[in-house]
Design a protein around this nucleic acid. Sequence first.
DNA 1: TCGTGGTGTTCCAACGTTGTAACCGGCGTG
DNA 2: CACGCCGGTTACAACGTTGGAACACCACGA
Lengths: 347, 347
Amino acid sequence: MAAVRLKDVAERAGVSIKTVSNVVRGAPRVSEATRSRVMRAVDELGYRPNPSARRLRTGRSGLIALVVPELATPYFAELAHHVRGEATLLGLTVLIEESLGDAAEELRLAGGVGASLLDGVILSPLRATPDELASVTDEFPLVLLGERTYGRNRVVADHVLIDNVAAARDLTAHLIGLGRTRIAAVGVDRQGSATSRQRLEGYQQALHAAGLPFDPRLAPRIEEFDRRNGLLAMRRLAALPAGERPDAVFCFSDLLAVGAQRALHEAGLAIPGDVAVAGIDGSEEALYSTPSLTTMVPDKAAIASLAVKCLAARIRSRAPLPFEVHVAPHWLEVRESTSGGRRALDA
Amino acid sequence: MAAVRLKDVAERAGVSIKTVSNVVRGAPRVSEATRSRVMRAVDELGYRPNPSARRLRTGRSGLIALVVPELATPYFAELAHHVRGEATLLGLTVLIEESLGDAAEELRLAGGVGASLLDGVILSPLRATPDELASVTDEFPLVLLGERTYGRNRVVADHVLIDNVAAARDLTAHLIGLGRTRIAAVGVDRQGSATSRQRLEGYQQALHAAGLPFDPRLAPRIEEFDRRNGLLAMRRLAALPAGERPDAVFCFSDLLAVGAQRALHEAGLAIPGDVAVAGIDGSEEALYSTPSLTTMVPDKAAIASLAVKCLAARIRSRAPLPFEVHVAPHWLEVRESTSGGRRALDA
DNA sequence: TCGTGGTGTTCCAACGTTGTAACCGGCGTG
DNA sequence: CACGCCGGTTACAACGTTGGAACACCACGA
């Protein structure tokens, strides 16, 4: 608490308030003598600048928000972890918000909540469309994760993403490479989110390249990317007549894959003997599941780093920069759920 | 960004700034006529109060922090989710911080970071001792999760916790009730955190009540409550000579249990046939693991609710209230990892 | 000796809000 | 009819900080 103000420090050091302000902000034009004298007074009194006053005066709060659909989703929790770390490096504080998959809430949060509380927002949109978000983006620094403009040519905001189509294509190709021919895709959502569409696209490309037909029955619709939906979808797939049952499942998230594994376990089907399973996210949960889960890993550290740096740059320059699209790397981790066997993890 | 101020609204409504302020704050002494006129102006201009200015004037920011060791831990992610929900109900915004298990960082964050940014803090301490935290607590609203004073009689802060000793005792008793006699405890940490000590205590109480000896070799020391430590600890336990190997494992977290299950899987031991496994946390991951994991569930919603309400009360009353200790309920979920079988989840 | 220029410091005002006190008008009461 | 009271409104100052202009000081060259 200790309401130590610039004024107190100034009196102690025998200089004016403004000089103390100059020192603590690291402004130039301060002699070494006064600087050290002021710093000593700062340390002795334990002065900490008042963020509200600073914000009121400068219009900058040093506060950014990360908006994710759901914090308890491992992927977003891990991402939040990385974003926080990256932001701390840049002297920014991160406010984490949940949209809970509500489009209106996403739009509200994209605009900066209490507007003048935040300098900028990193948003992982689930329902809100690029067009809707475009209205915010001229006035307020906003970086989008994993979305991309469709339909129109113009980019409406900064984007950081992985190549979802390629990731899905490569993962499907991996399953095809195992000799599987009836490959299901679990993750086509009813609302038609961009992520879902892109992964379906990659999946279809891989099927097509291998001369395999696309069977809509193997691409059931789901509501959310969570364990429960994976479980329910896989139960239905496992219940298909013998010849029509899939021999591999490409899940659009690790959580879906974990749910699918559970359904296969209940149905008494072997993984990968009867059905191979793969996910996307690179969550630690996937590594430790039984069997360990093959997954396509987005480089979360890179995504976080690019997003924070991009946002920081946009905040710094008030002038409207052209929007950028950054693509983060991804890679495949092949594990027991597609390769079989029982290896010790190197943990 | 639409810098609409009280002044703008006042001009539009033809009243003074202060009257507008009174209206938006819901202060009494405003006639219905002016109230509606002002509200209309507010809506038309899209006025949003400036949090920084408000905070500067009132000393309240409506911002609280939740400090957890690690966001990517499912338990804390779920807890954060609940805390956010509860705080939103009370009109508070939550800033989520990670201490990364560093005592100094915990102390710094307990003090409110930039002090004057936050109204209060909910801290889940891992390393910092109650005595260290006591220095903060007189000056700054602080609620602790899951710690409790030891050694001294005085309570140094508000606490919200579950009865860890009882939870551990009941869970161990459950394992004993299955007829197991060599029950390992995975979760004794080197730093001797309060949580770890309390759970060990409950474990020992249950052993004692059943007339079973305490074998220190079955209570290996670990570093963290994560999957990796569970894996490594269980590997060592599984490598014990036949007669000394445990036939059940009580893990102090679900993550440890998941790691332990993985080690048993690698060692070719059956769960629960050879070794029964149980955890604490009630994470969703535990429900979907293979086999599904018996776990002691802390009522996270209750913990979050109690913590937020307690903190809000302390913030409201500047006067030093006596410290309170709230105990949240917990219950046992018995699943395949101790009961055997293969049931369909009712999801 | 006086300017000149640069360097270091101070003074003033303002950011948007709210608490306090003062103000105004109308009503009920003596 | 005068007075006091109270509901409703306004004026003013202050919260802690920083940008800009003004100011003092020193060394230097004219």
